[in-house]
Design a protein around this nucleic acid. Structure first.
Lengths: 341, 341
DNA sequence: TTGAAAGCGCTAACAC
DNA sequence: GTGTTAGCGCTTTCAA
């Protein structure tokens, strides 16, 4: 049995109240008493019982993270960095991080379980969708939330996101500057918000460049190696090959690059490639570096979201409820001018 | 405010006691009463407050998973599957999964926080070490635990593991059967239990085959792409190249394979390669499949460990406290007879 | 079969 | 400054 507050206060000849206050940093405790209390607490290795504290305070001191397995997030190393940043920052405030898995179909119910059971008092919503019932639900019940990504109506809640549209514009501009006109586009399901935004950027930049978007060159590539691989093959099999290809996510990008290599396509000469979020160098052919649209470290994203959520849970006003980070273009040797002809 | 037990019982004209019992499946409640209670609970969307229940029952209804960031687990897709299996199974028993990150140096303290604060009542210990103070600590304080991997003294606690030694013996036997005699070995830090076991298998199988282990061909390759890459380069630069190479983990294996490809080594002809746990096909050159020692799905491993831990926490005797799964050899075209000369 | 009462370990009004 | 008292919302003896 670990020492409890009663024992501790008995040993000190003080009331539990005083001890509690001393330990929780209230200022109506004499310096001397606090000193003694802290000393003794250390000596006995006293750790307040979390559950009791939670019940008394009416807070769960925990935040929930539901990861939709179907979405393939688990395979995304960037998302893992996000988790890392999240949990590190939460831990600093002595908050627990509850991880719940969910198939997309049961996801909402998972949130409900977490919320109405009082297991968490704040939530991180990952992989936002253009229309997102999870966020609607959380807002309706008034649970503090920070979304990792926006939705179609992004004003009512706090979020952290990268400027996906601007990022994709960068990608198109690179290709256009090199002289490409037939630009192919491989994208994740457009119900995902980031995919919709990136596609909007694609359309906008193409139009701005006076280029037509050839529907035959726009392919849904899913959100995994496998689907990306298959989609790239479909694209290659089409009547007119593009001279440039932009892939809107790294998972599918990896599969696509693989497919191109398999098909013997000379990346960067026959076909220029940019992958949003990039492809790790070490999975590629020697010396190859895929040009990318890069995002500032995912770890920081996690930290920042934790920070925002903590403030919300404390009821503090958030200086900026919306953080939109600008992606940057990261050069590579996977792009070049279109092949003659 | 969600409905609480008091409101629910008031609505029913029953005491909280009875309602609680009805809902928790006690048998001293009349069928009719139970019926009514369940009906009304559903109607009001009653969800018992977890914190209160926890305090009353003296259990946390949660298990902790501390992942050592330094170890590179986060990058290991297999470990993520394990988490998936774990959380799915725990959820079925209405248990929370607490995720805590930790640098190796602060790891023990993280466990202490979880335990003595009563945040969890059971723990999964990942990446066991040959001498593992975490397990010593947990046993000392009597917390139910299931280890993912063994230690040097594996008898006192429940664990789930693959037969690493046997797996590595398989790998060596394959190489030997093909006629290899100069077999190189790239391994993770030997303080990690799986690495030590696999190395033991390597030594044993080499000896059994009457082959000497050339110290120059045994290189520590770490537990990441980067270190594996570097280690393979070191090996290639050595005075006598091996004709076969075995890598004891997938992370480092990926980097090593990359390094070989970069160096223009004809894998499977100039140099045969087996990677423990395998390298995903889609990161390789077209048509290449790295021979591997494979382990039954990691998802099942997670599920099984959850199952074991749940039983332990319920105080049930565990039919088999130790689960040792046999790995299998998975063929590929990365191996062949040694090149002539 | 049901209810009253006590208590899980802590925090927070309120009084001294 | 410190102590008294009353909960937080549930479970669980113990009586009825």
């Amino acid at each position: 049995m670990p020492t409890d507050l009663k024992q501790l206060s008995a040993r000190l000849g003080l009331s539990a109240t005083t001890v509690s206050r001393a330990l929780n940093g209230y200022d109506d405790v004499s310096a001397k008493t606090r000193e003694r209390v802290e000393q003794m607490a250390r000596e006995l290795g006293y750790q307040p019982n979390r559950t009791a504290r939670r019940l008394a305070r009416g807070r769960a001191d925990a935040v929930g993270l539901v990861y939709p397995l179907d979405a393939g997030d688990l395979g995304d190393p960037r998302f893992l960095e996000v988790i890392e940043g999240l949990s590190d920052r939460l831990e600093a405030d002595d908050m627990d991080l509850l991880l719940a898995s969910a198939r997309e179909r049961t996801e909402l119910r998972t949130y409900q379980r977490l919320i109405s059971g009082g297991r968490v008092d704040g939530v991180i919503v990952a992989r936002t969708r253009v229309v997102d019932e999870r966020i609607d639900y959380l807002q309706r019940v008034g649970v503090p939330l920070v979304a990792y990504g926006r939705t179609a109506q992004p004003d009512g809640f706090a979020w952290f996101d990268f400027d996906n549209e601007a990022g994709m514009v960068l990608a198109v501009q690179q290709m256009v500057a090199l002289g490409h006109r037939r630009i192919g586009y491989l994208h994740a399901p457009l119900s995902l918000c980031f995919a919709a935004q990136r596609q909007a950027g694609f359309q906008r930049a193409m139009q701005a460049a006076g280029l037509a978007v050839d529907p035959a060159l726009v392919v849904e590539g899913g959100l995994s190696h496998r689907t990306g691989h298959a989609a790239a093959q479909r694209l290659l099999a089409g009547p007119t090959r593009p001279s440039a290809l932009i892939v809107d996510n790294n998972l599918c990008g990896m599969g696509a690059v693989r497919a191109l290599l398999d098909a013997g396509v000379a990346i960067g000469r026959e076909l220029s490639v940019i992958v949003y979020d990039g492809v790790p160098d070490d999975v590629l052919r020697a010396g190859m570096r895929i040009a990318a649209i890069g995002q500032p470290t995912a770890y920081r994203a996690g930290e920042t979201m934790a920070e925002m959520l903590l403030a919300l849970m404390r009821g503090e006003p958030l200086p900026d409820r919306h953080r939109l980070l600008q992606p940057v273009f990261e050069p590579g040797n996977s792009i070049g001018p279109p092949a003659a002809g």
